[in-house]
């Protein structure tokens, strides 16, 4: 098992958000966290990335417990995050945004380098000298994904990677994620495009009020209209 999350509890101040979700991700597996806004998906991701310290529970990544580690240590362990809102550096160029994120790993047969990221996202190669604030939303999203790839992750977590993008650009992002999946990269994806996720992901977890209330594969989710209506429709 690549990632094993056990009975996670976390919150902000006195406000508890997570009430013990447990889930796992295998090597090369694509898993989603689904649910309406405010249910705890991003809080879960923040705990995984070390940005929020859980009050209880355990997070095991590649066999080691990481829930008390700092964010940079978790990134070095092979955890790549594409955060909601992208969080690229607006005053740095595309090249600088990418290079500063780079983590070299000697155990990779085909490591992600600047050249490989630019080959994967040719659009970024045309924008190398542009500042982050000069990019379109879709280009910023490519940069956020490219920056996460520069850390040579074993697990890539994408929090609302297609949010706010036009359908054509969303499709381009999904195309790229499909290509990443074919390389065997494990992913956790949070997104509202259920239709795309049913096709893209292997397994799904639905988060409701800080708990996992449903889990299963795409066939099970697609046929469970009751769960979709109860937990996913707005």
């Amino acid at each position: 098992m690549l990632l094993d999350v056990r009975k996670l509890e976390a919150g902000y101040g006195r406000s508890q958000v997570l009430f013990g979700p447990s889930f796992s991700v295998g090597k090369g597996e694509v898993v989603t966290l689904l649910g309406r806004n405010g249910m705890g998906k991003t809080t879960t991701v923040r705990c995984l990335a070390g940005l929020l310290r859980p009050s209880a529970g355990e997070i095991h990544f590649k066999g080691a417990r990481i829930d008390s580690r700092a964010p940079h240590a978790i990134a070095h362990a092979g955890f790549g995050l594409v955060p909601e809102g992208r969080h690229i550096f607006p005053n740095l160029t595309v090249r600088e945004n990418l290079v500063m994120a780079g983590i070299k790993r000697s155990d990779r047969r085909e490591p992600w380098t600047l050249e490989r990221v630019l080959e994967f996202f040719p659009r970024l190669a045309e924008r190398l000298a542009n500042g982050g604030n000069q990019l379109s939303g879709g280009e910023q999203q490519m940069l956020a994904i490219g920056r996460a790839l520069m850390t040579n992750p074993d697990l890539l977590v994408l929090d609302e990677a297609t949010e706010g993008l036009a359908p054509l650009i969303r499709q381009q992002i999904w195309n790229k994620l499909d290509a990443l999946k074919q390389t065997g990269l494990a992913m956790i994806v949070i997104d509202k495009e259920i239709d795309a996720l049913l096709r893209f992901a292997d397994r799904h977890y639905i988060v409701e009020k800080g708990e996992i209330v449903w889990s299963g594969d795409s066939d099970a989710l697609e046929s469970d209209k009751q769960a979709q209506d109860a937990y996913l429709s707005v």
Binding site: R123, R127, Q134, G138, E139, L168, I169, Q171, Q172, N175
Partner: peptide, 24 residues
């Protein structure tokens, strides 16, 4: 068709695609 699709996204005017964003 992957290259053709990317070309369409590159040419399509923002916000539909990436077209028209400034170059340094």
């Amino acid at each position: 068709y992957a290259a053709l699709f990317d070309r369409i996204v590159d040419l399509a005017p923002a916000p539909i695609g990436h077209g028209g964003s400034p170059r340094a």
